[in-house]
Nucleic acid binder design. Structure first.
Lengths: 72, 72
DNA sequence: ATTATAAGTGCTGTTTAATGCTCTTTTTAT
DNA sequence: ATAAAAAGAGCATTAAACAGCACTTATAAT
């Protein structure tokens, strides 16, 4: 997943869960500004920040081996 | 995957591919120092840095939904 | 159309990641 | 056992993430 996909995933997941940026900020401990920055595509969060966000959204950061094979 | 798992995964993958930290640094454009920091568990890389590393190792950063169900 | 709520942005200070250089420690060959 | 290669760590500098605040823009509801 490249950057924009990651952002889209986070954003969509947040919306599905009906959490506002403010809510996510509160729950995750990540600053609201940082979230806004990230979701608007202007950020480069640290792994820790990404994990905090993902965590609250019931997701996790994963490292996947690119197989080359059509792989969903 | 929490931090230590990510590190372990990167490290192992690098070793499987027989790439040294120096080699990975060169190939990825990430500073050698940064790699050392990260692999020795003392770093908190940015997403961009992590992606550069993963990329060279034929891996990608993924966001996975935690199902709770035993899920490999 | 107005109002309320959420999302995005400029400005700013503080913290810390990224990097290079040098040195030490560990691992791997010979 | 020793030499060579790789990995780890201290120190210092630069760049950028993190964060809050205030303001604007966009979206949603009445």
């Amino acid at each position: 997943m490249h950057f924009s996909e990651l952002i889209k995933t986070i954003k969509e997941r947040r919306e599905v869960l009906q959490v506002t940026q403010q809510g996510l900020a509160d729950l995750s401990g990540v600053g609201l500004r940082t979230l806004k920055q990230f979701e608007s595509g202007k950020g480069n969060p640290t792994l820790l920040t990404l994990q905090k966000i993902a965590d609250v959204l019931g997701m996790e950061v994963y490292l996947k081996i690119k197989t080359g094979t059509p792989n969903k």
